[in-house]
Every structure is written in structure tokens, then in C-alpha cells.
């Protein structure tokens, strides 16, 4: 049973890093970013290209930096204009971005599956509960915890973090108090995209890299942010951990329903607590 909890923790960690970017962007821009899955996929591809040449660490850095740049461009060109529009419009536009990015990746990297090895230092197994467990999976937990901790500390105690929270709460009042909200937007969307790119490259060593990998995981990261409460960072954390455990134990205990459980959970939350675990009403 403990091994299942550990499996759930690993998957939950990955989902959290992915959803964190989604939550950040929604919190500030109120844009439901369907392109987030494509950013994750793009991160995996860019990271893969760099990692195969210069090593895994370089791949991680490249994925983060490149995707941050993509995020800044996305914000300046699209999200800034979309903020305040009808949700349906933002959904359609960002979905269009997803399709475009998938085709760009197809024409640059081709349609075949690719794979990346974990770095040598993380490629072994450790004995946990009497059975081998891949070290890399523990690294995923540690990396997610570091990213989550860093982000939380920055938002809570950093001066810029304070500005981000202020702008997310009420952009006009924040601007009146002297916060440069125009600069906050690209920074937050860039950071959100960087999180997507990082989760892509971090996931790459245990997944197949292919153009539709983003749309496959996108649905689950939406489930995470809906359960957590759109825009809530702490809520997303709880929801991702919960979903990881639901997936892991559901597969073992209720195999016939396992694929359905995350959605049942989401439906339950939408009916009984529509604002999500940590969201506020209104």
C-alpha cells in the first residue's frame, strides 16, 4: 500500500508543477490557457534537443528559459488583449495556439516518438519497501517540491511576489498604488510557461516525447485547477496530491472505475463546492 502512496506522490508532484503554471496565468490574466499542454510539450522537445547534446541539466535550463521567452511573447501578443474578454473567446484562441504549436513541433522534429534517458546520476533504483524504486521518480518529487517551495516563498515574501498577488487581486488598485502592472503580466505568463516547459523536460525521462503528449495531460491539469479552485496556488497543490493518490489507489482498488475517478471528483467539487477547495466565492 505504501508503494501506491509513493507512486501517487510522484504523479501528483508532476501534475502540480504543470498545473502551477496554469493557475498563475489564470490568477492574473483570467485566461484559461488551453495552450498550456503545448507549452509542456514544447518544453519536452526543446529540453530533449539540448539534453542530447549538452546533458540533462542544460536541457532543463534550456526548456525553462526558452519557454519563459515563449510565455512573454504570448502575453504581449495575445493574453494582454484577451484579458477581460468572454471566456469562450480566450478558450478558442488559446486552443488555436495549441494546434499551431503542435504543427510547428511536427514540422521541426517530425512525428516519431522520442525518448530521453535520465541523467546517469539519477538512473538507478533504490530499495523502498523491499522492492526497487527508480531514483528518478524521487527526483521528480524533490524537483517539484523545490519549484513549489520557491514559487510559494516568492509570492509570499518577495516584493515582486507581493506585486503579483496584488495585481491578481485587483489590477487597477494595484496600479494606483504604484505597481507596474504592465510589467507584471509578461513576467507572470513567462513564469507560468517556464513551469510548463520545466514539467515537460522533467517528465521526459519517463515518458515518450511526441506531439500530442501535451493534449493528453492537459485535461488532468485542468481537473487539478478546477478541483483546487481556479487561480489558487495552495488549492492546486492539494488537488494535485489528491489526484495523484486517487489515480494510484484507484488503479489498484477500483480498476474498472480508475479512469473515471478524477472526473467524478471534479464533478463532485463543481456541484458541492463550485469555487474549488481553496477558491473564494464570486
Amino acid at each position: 500500500m505504501l508503494i501506491n502512496a509513493l507512486n501517487g506522490l510522484v504523479y501528483g508532484s508532476l501534475l502540480f508543477v504543470l498545473s502551477a503554471g496554469l493557475v498563475l496565468v489564470y490568477g492574473l490574466r483570467r485566461v484559461v490557457n488551453f495552450a498550456h499542454g503545448a507549452l509542456y510539450m514544447l518544453g519536452a522537445y526543446i529540453g530533449w534537443s539540448v539534453a542530447t547534446l549538452y546533458g540533462f541539466a542544460a536541457g532543463v535550463v534550456a526548456a525553462g528559459v526558452a519557454l519563459a521567452a515563449v510565455g512573454v511573447v504570448l502575453d504581449l501578443v495575445l493574453f494582454r488583449r484577451l484579458a477581460g474578454r468572454q471566456p469562450l473567446i480566450t478558450v478558442i484562441v488559446t486552443f488555436g495556439v495549441l494546434l499551431i504549436l503542435e504543427d510547428v513541433v511536427r514540422s521541426v522534429w517530425g512525428t516519431g516518438n522520442r525518448a530521453l534517458d535520465p541523467p546517469a546520476a539519477l538512473d538507478g533504483v533504490v530499495e523502498i519497501f523491499g522492492a526497487p524504486f527508480p531514483v528518478y521518480r524521487l527526483f521528480i518529487v524533490a524537483a517539484s517540491a523545490a519549484m513549489a517551495g520557491g514559487l510559494a516563498a516568492w509570492l509570499r515574501w518577495g516584493r515582486t511576489g507581493l506585486f503579483v498577488r496584488a495585481a491578481s487581486h485587483d489590477a487597477s488598485v494595484a496600479a494606483m498604488c504604484g505597481v507596474r502592472t504592465a510589467a507584471i503580466g509578461p513576467m507572470v505568463v513567462g513564469l507560468g510557461a517556464a513551469f510548463a516547459g520545466l514539467s515537460g523536460i522533467v517528465a521526459a525521462p519517463f515518458l515518450s516525447i511526441h506531439p500530442s503528449m501535451g493534449s493528453e495531460i492537459l485535461v488532468l491539469s485542468f481537473v487539478v485547477s478546477v478541483i483546487g479552485g481556479l487561480g489558487s496556488f495552495a488549492g492546486a497543490f492539494v488537488a494535485a496530491m489528491l489526484l495523484g493518490q486517487v489515480q494510484s489507489f484507484g488503479t489498484v482498488l477500483l480498476p474498472e472505475l480508475a479512469a473515471l475517478l478524477p472526473f467524478l471528483l471534479m464533478a463532485g467539487v463543481l456541484i458541492f463546492r463550485p469555487q474549488g477547495i481553496a477558491g473564494t466565492k464570486g
Binding site: A131, E216, V252
Partner: peptide, 20 residues
């Protein structure tokens, strides 16, 4: 016998089940 849905990303729960 385990039947993961198409598009499954994490096979760990299935793998540990098969191993156990």
C-alpha cells in the same frame, strides 16, 4: 490482468501491481 486507458502517462500503479 490490467487494462490502462489509452493515453496513460504514468504506468507506475500498473507496474507495481504486476510486480506484486
Amino acid at each position: 490482468e490490467v487494462f490502462p486507458p489509452v493515453g496513460t502517462t504514468d504506468y507506475a500503479p500498473y507496474i507495481t501491481q504486476l510486480r506484486d
